[in-house]
Simulated scan of single mutants.
Amino acid sequence: MQNAASQITPEYLPDGDAARLIGVSAATLRNSRSRGTLLGHEAPQWVKLGRKVRYRRRDLLEWVEHNAVECRAAQS
């Protein structure tokens, strides 16, 4: 049986988890912080908690929604 703490979804994500959530590599996400862009769009917001960089889950999901391009299959 898992304890309650293992079922908590963190609000602040490290690079690797944040990158997986939006479908890029951790290195690409790290580079986006200095460049200010990610995949041709403004990079997602990030925060510093002490010496650690973290991404808010809600900011990442908003970034995906804002920058998503819907594609539809061509009908024949």
Rank of each mutant, 00 (worst) to 15 (best):
H41N: 14
H41Y: 11
Q75H: 06
Q75V: 10
D15K: 00
Q75W: 10
S76L: 03
T28L: 09
Y12T: 01
D59M: 01
S6C: 10
R33G: 08
S76M: 01
N67Y: 05
A73M: 04
L38W: 03
L38G: 06
G40Q: 07
R20S: 13
R35C: 09
V64E: 00
A18Q: 06
D15C: 02
A68V: 07
A4G: 05
S25D: 12
A43I: 03
P14S: 06
R56D: 01
D17Q: 15
Y55F: 12
Q7I: 04
R20C: 10
L21E: 02
Q45H: 12
R56Q: 04
Q45S: 13
L29P: 02
L38C: 07
V53D: 04
R54W: 04
V47N: 07
V24D: 01
H41E: 10
T37Y: 09
R57I: 00
R51K: 14
Q7M: 13
P44I: 01
Q75I: 10
T9W: 09
L29C: 06
V24E: 01
G50P: 02
V64N: 01
A74G: 01
A26E: 11
R56K: 11
Q75A: 15
R56G: 05
R30H: 10
L49K: 12
R33L: 11
N31R: 14
I8Y: 12
Y12S: 02
A19S: 05
L61K: 08
R33P: 05
W46T: 09
V64A: 07
D17A: 15
T9I: 14
